[in-house]
Amino acid sequence: MIRSITQQKPEEELDQLLEGLGRIFIIGCGTCVTLTQTGGGPEIAKMKEKLSQKGKMITGDVVVPVACDNLTRDALDEYGGRIDQADVLLIMTCAFGVQTIARQIKKMVVPALDTLFIGKETSLGEFNEICTQCGTCILGETGGICPVTSCHKGLVNGPCGGTNNGKCEIDKDKECAWTLIYNRLNELNRLDAMRKLQKPRNHQGELSPGKWRLKLETRNP
């Protein structure tokens, strides 16, 4: 399943964001951030402890089932009083959750996490970015491995000169996307796909910010 991958903001940044705000209500989420151990029950407990030590008052806390779902509002309803008492909502969910909650509740929100990417748990405890949702999918020519996402430079015509021993120049723990694509296409006996000189990408496939409407069939009168 695709997940929103997050990490906690540096403590100094959080301190700055919460400066002068004494009463805090904390919201976590039972989905992605619980999996990544950045905004589930145990992380909220730790955050509460830390903030209390810094003299903050925690008016309440909750782990909603799916923060980015519209039902979050109902889940938060029963905490209305405690939320009202707070100066700020400290939200330990991904940015989708933060924005959903900000839309539903008239309160300043502070994200406790940085949202890194949309990814997948590829092995136990390891998460990898798999799609940047560029709007111009080229997986059909790369054996199903995305260089736009998996190559640091998003190159579509093969590796740069920085690749070494099948790893990326920016991090030898990261695979070189083009070594992976080469190996896959070689295995499938389809290296001809890699030999094709690709034109420059269309970076305006979907103009940012993305917006898409379901096209309802028009009925004949």
Partner: peptide
């Protein structure tokens, strides 16, 4: 290393 992907790019 590996060389072959670089050579494909060289040809392109």
């Amino acid at each position: 290393n590996p060389l072959e992907p670089q050579l494909i790019k060289f040809e392109k």
